[in-house]
């Protein structure tokens, strides 16, 4: 059984002075130059910025996919990174503590909807029946239960994205990283996805960071982090529509 992290009442994510440098010497590029960010449990914040501003690098650092150069990251009471990884098993960290929602849903094409969602609890050691039950409950909450036996190729774009959100939420991670989740969707479906993310954040007390440059959804965030040249600037958003 993999290491289970301590349950924490403080489920938010905090980043202090996060830096990431690619390359060495004269060719080195500082993608992140000391980023600060805090997202509370149940909160959905936007991370916006132009291409090349460091959004994806930041997402990869937050997702424990690439190693930052310096800084500190905490998830709840767990220090994940402090000028070096403090968690020995990043794979288990990603599986249990971080949910991912991608620009394209990237569902596993040879698994049906239920098993796409149930795969994570199964990987965490739950029985197939238990994992599927958990997946069905989430699919019901996201209103795609009726498609539970369908293959991903049989779903519409909106349905695929909802299944992808279900997969990100199924292990009840304290933080979800959503990378351009509304990019391939029209306005109506994009707003539906943001509405679902807000509902899920409140329902599961999850901190959600939405990386986007989709003008349609930016006004929905209460707080927005702008990132430019590897530095973040926080501002209050309009936050309309989803309370």
């Amino acid at each position: 059984m993999d290491k289970q992290y301590s349950d924490s009442s403080e489920r938010g994510i905090r980043i202090e002075g996060l830096k990431k440098r690619y390359g060495h010497g004269d060719t080195a590029v500082d993608a992140l130059k000391g980023v600060d960010m805090y997202v509370a449990p149940g909160e959905v914040v936007g991370l916006v910025g132009p291409s090349g501003s460091g959004k994806t690098t930041m997402l990869k650092c937050l997702g424990a996919v690439i190693e930052p150069t310096a800084g500190r990251m905490t998830l709840g009471r767990d220090v994940i990174y402090d000028d070096g990884w403090k968690i020995p098993d990043l794979r288990t960290l990603r599986r249990d503590k971080i949910g991912f929602v991608f620009q394209a849903p990237y569902l596993i094409p040879f698994l049906n909807v239920t098993d796409n969602v149930a795969l994570l609890p199964m990987l965490a050691g739950k029985s197939n029946a238990e994992a599927r039950k958990q997946a069905i409950e989430l699919l019901k909450a996201l209103d795609v239960e009726h498609r539970s036996s369908a293959m991903p190729s049989q779903l519409s774009g909106g349905e695929q994205q909802r299944v992808s959100i279900a997969r990100g939420l199924v292990n009840h991670p304290p933080v979800i990283l959503a990378d351009e989740p509304t990019a391939p969707l029209d306005s109506e479906r994009a707003m539906a996805v943001i509405r679902i993310l807000n509902q899920m954040a409140r329902q599961f007390d999850t901190a959600i960071i939405v990386v986007t440059h989709d003008e349609k959804i930016i006004p929905t965030f209460k707080r927005i982090y702008h990132i430019r040249d590897g530095v973040t600037y926080e501002e209050a958003g309009e936050g309309r529509g989803f309370d």
Binding site: V65, R91, R94, F100, F102, I108, L119, L123, A124
Partner: peptide, 15 residues
């Protein structure tokens, strides 16, 4: 791409 997703969501290498 599927393998990358599987690895990202925590699938073990041996799986």
């Amino acid at each position: 791409r599927e393998i990358a997703v599987l690895k990202l969501i925590g699938t073990k290498n041996r799986t």
